[in-house]
């Protein structure tokens, strides 16, 4: 992945979240406090506004910048999870304008590990991990089988919407939706939905490169 592809991933995510803002807010209204789309968009707008600064930065530095921007503008659980998770990713990305696909997978692996640890969540808790964990698993398995990165992430992008939709059947165990108990069943988790958008952007941005 090049730094340009990395940049376009985040610009794509910014556009997707902006396009889906009302839907994300509506999902959050059902089981939370109606602001997931608004909060993510505020952070990603800032990321995009700073784009000129990190466009030519190395991968580790641009990931770190994005992490700090999201950490200081999104707020709530999403800001803490995305921000602190990306800081961990930045630590494995190289001080270079390019990295191989195994390193991208390792960076996503660190992100997922950080989100799980900070959020104390496991699969099935009705959170963003219900998309990120199976996606990471598919990515690692696909690369281990020797499949091209682009093919693997395109398949993940296709599946991610289903994984997000499947959270509707789950009872929330973490986050604000957990207070609803059984009443959280029947609603898609907004964090899982925005995570699916991110994977689609990864496929769009890096999926054609190899």
């Amino acid at each position: 992945m090049t730094n340009r592809e990395f940049a376009s991933l985040w610009l794509c995510f910014k556009r997707s979240v902006a396009d889906s803002r009302e839907y994300l807010n509506a999902l959050d209204a059902a089981i939370g406090d109606a602001d997931h789309g608004t909060n993510l968009q505020r952070g990603l707008d800032k990321v995009a506004a700073e784009r000129a600064a990190w466009g030519e930065l190395t991968l580790d530095a641009s990931c770190q910048r994005i992490a700090m921007t999201l950490l200081s503008t999104v707020g709530g659980a999403s800001g803490a999870l995305w921000g602190s998770g990306l800081l961990k990713s930045a630590a494995v990305l190289p001080n270079a304008l390019w990295c191989d696909e195994a390193t991208v997978a390792a960076a996503i692996g660190r992100f997922v590990g950080s989100v799980a640890e900070r959020g104390k969540a496991v699969i099935g808790d009705k959170t963003m991990l219900d998309v990120f964990l199976p996606a990471l698993h598919e990515l690692e398995a696909g690369l281990a089988r020797g499949q091209p990165f682009s093919q693997v992430v395109r398949q993940i992008a296709a599946d991610a919407g289903n994984w997000a939709r499947d959270t509707a059947a789950l009872q929330a165990k973490r986050g604000r939706a957990a207070y609803l108990g059984p009443r959280s069943v029947g609603h898609i988790d907004p964090g899982a939905w925005s995570s699916a958008l991110w994977w689609r952007c990864l496929a769009d941005s890096a999926g054609g490169g190899s």
Binding site: L71, S72, G76, A77
Partner: peptide, 12 residues
């Protein structure tokens, strides 16, 4: 103070 109904960020 965070945004409405949203936790403040660590830097704040």
């Amino acid at each position: 103070a965070g945004e409405v109904f949203t936790s403040p960020t660590p830097d704040q």
